[in-house]
Simulated assay, not measured.
Amino acid sequence: MTRIGTSSLDVLPLSLGGNVFGWTADRDESFAILDAFHGGGGDFVDTADSYSAWVDGNSGGESETIIGEWLASRRPEGFVVATKVSQHPQFSGLAAANVRAAAEASVSRLGVEAIDLYYAHFDDESVPLEETVAAFGALVTDGLVRYTAVSNYSAERIREWLRIADELGVARPVAIQPHYNLVHRNEVEESIIPVAQQFDLSLVPYFSLAKGFLTGKYRSTDASAQSSPRAGAAAQYATSQGLAIIDALEGIGRAHDVSIAAAALAWLKAQHTVAAPIASASRVAQVADLLDGARTELSADEVAELTRVSEWTPTSV
C-alpha cells in the first residue's frame, strides 16, 4: 500500500482508469472490470466528469454514473474515487461557481458523500488562480471533497497554487496527475518531480502505458491493422528506440513471470514521488496484468536498465 501525498488515502499502488467506462467498455463489462480489479486487491479508481462526452450519444458523466452504480451495488469498503473538473460540456472551466456545480453533479452521479480526490483537470488561465484555489478550498471545508489535486499543470502554476492556498489558509493539493511513462519522461522529471519532492505531493501519472504502446502490442508504426481507437497514437512510439524499450521490458517481465505492461507499470511505480500509475482495461482479461504491475518489485539494476534504455524523447506526443 502507498499513501497519497500528505493525505490519509492509503491505496494499492495502481489506479484503475475509468476513461473507458461508457466508451470501449459498456456498463456490464465495466462492472466486470471493476469486480476483477477490486477482487484482486485494487481500491483506487480514476475518472473525470467529462468521460466520455466525446462518444456519439454521450453527454459526459457516463463513467462517473457507471462507477456510482457499481459502488451502490457492491459497497466496497475503503474504495478511493478520484474525479476531475473543467472539461464537462456543461461545466467547462474553473470559475468558482462552475467548480461548485460540477462537484455537486459528480457527487450525485457517484453516489458518494464526498469525493476522495478532486482534480483541476486542466489549467484555466481565463480565471484568476485565486478564485479557483478558493473554490477548491471551500469544497474541502464544506465536506464535498476530502482532498484536492491538480492535473496537467505546469510546475510554475503548481507552485503558485500552493502559495495561494497557504495565503488563503485552505487545503493544499496532495497530488499531481501528469502525462508520464517510459516514453514520455523529460518534462515530468525535470520540472514536476522537483516540485512534488519539495512539497510532499504524490504523482498519479496518466498514459502510464503510452496509450497501449507499453503493452508490447504495437511493434510497427503502421497502425492500420489495429482496431483500437488509440492505435495510431500508440504506434508512433514504435521506433527503433521505442522497440528497444519493449525488448528490455519483455526480458525483465519474463524474469518476474509478468507481462510487458506489468513491467512498465512496475518501473513507473519505482520512480520518485509516484504513488499509483493510472492504467485502464477495456476487457476483464487485461486486469490481471495491471494488478501484477502494482505488486512487482523490480531490482535496482532492472530499474536502472529501463531508465537507461528509455532516455529519449519522441518527436511528437
Rank of each mutant, 00 (worst) to 15 (best):
T221S: 14
A234N: 09
S202F: 08
I246S: 06
A262P: 04
I245T: 14
A264W: 00
P205W: 03
S259N: 08
I246A: 06
A255V: 03
L209M: 11
A231P: 11
T215G: 06
D247Q: 14
F207E: 11
S240G: 14
H256N: 10
Q236P: 01
A248Q: 14
L249R: 01
Y237V: 03
L201T: 09
I246K: 04
E250G: 09
A244T: 04
A223H: 14
Y206T: 12
G253S: 07
G212I: 09
D247P: 07
K269V: 00
F207Q: 10
L214N: 03
S224N: 08
A210C: 06
T239I: 08
V204M: 14
D222S: 07
A262D: 03
A231I: 09
T221A: 13
K211H: 13
L203G: 05
H256P: 05
K269N: 11
G216C: 06
T215F: 03
G242M: 11
S202H: 04
F199P: 00
I246T: 06
A235I: 09
G251Y: 01
Q241P: 00
I260V: 15
Q198K: 15
Y206F: 15
A233V: 11
D200V: 10
A233P: 01
F199G: 00
L249M: 12
A223T: 04
F199H: 15
P229F: 12
V204T: 14
I252F: 05
V258I: 11
T239H: 05
Y206R: 13
A248G: 11
